[in-house]
Design a protein around this nucleic acid. Structure first.
Lengths: 123, 123
DNA sequence: CTGCTTGTCAACCATTGGGTTGAACAAGGG
DNA sequence: CCCTTGTTCAACCCAATGGTTGACAAGCAG
């Protein structure tokens, strides 16, 4: 099986699952209630829940015939940590680059283009 | 076509791609150099890069025959924003729950239901 | 017991995803 | 001008994913 972080990212790579997670931040829910807004079968939602559960994003208990779904919000930390760690490294590097540029400007060397903004194509 | 956020999450759901991103935080790189550590064909890496590019996580320019790959770190914000928004909502809810429990313990009432939350919906 | 509600399991199908190999293209450097 | 380097395109394979339908387990309500 793939590692935890991969499963979490993969789980959130689906809009329906992200929406389910979003709704679960408001309240625990049963499978039926969760499924209501979407135009797919209950079984499909059940599968989505399995994905979320395997990723550790939700847990399910038992309550009569119902299986309340509960969000495990701590898992967010796993992603945040990864992202922030790398964002930080990237930013450190940029500031290092800025230093180089500043240095060159001081020396009176030919001013190179500063960091190109160059936004990706709109999608 | 899936939405941007989905593509970003999907792109990072693969360990090889995450590792490439990690290495790109240190320095821009050519496809060949990027591919070196992995035990797959160059074409496979090229595909991975396409995924990262479609997600807006990297951009490629041209430099002689080389195609330097550059990390677009701002995209991290997209994820961070989504994650933090929902983490926060979940936490607010937890503290609200704590309030309810505290309330019940104080005056022994049943189901207070003060403070109807009803936040704006978002995906 | 019967029957409705809630949810899962199993089998199946179409699409996507990650990998391969082989050929092609782009841009210098002899 | 051809050759080498760097990278991508195209066709193909196989496993995984997201969806379907049909059957069935588990509880509560009659």
């Amino acid at each position: 099986m793939t590692d935890r972080l991969s499963r979490v990212f993969a789980a959130l790579a689906d809009p329906t699952r992200r929406d389910m997670v979003a709704r679960l931040t408001e309240a625990d829910s049963t499978v039926n209630d969760l499924a209501a807004p979407y135009d797919v079968s209950l079984q499909a939602i059940s599968k989505h829940l399995k994905v979320l559960e395997d990723a550790g994003l939700v847990s399910r208990s038992r309550e009569a015939q119902r299986r309340p779904v509960h969000l495990e919000a701590e898992v967010f930390d796993l992603m945040t940590k990864w992202i922030e760690r790398h964002r930080q490294r990237a930013e450190e590097r940029f500031s290092r680059l800025d230093d180089v540029v500043a240095q060159m400007n001081e020396d009176g060397t030919t001013a190179p283009a500063t960091r190109t903004p160059q936004e990706g194509t709109a999608s």
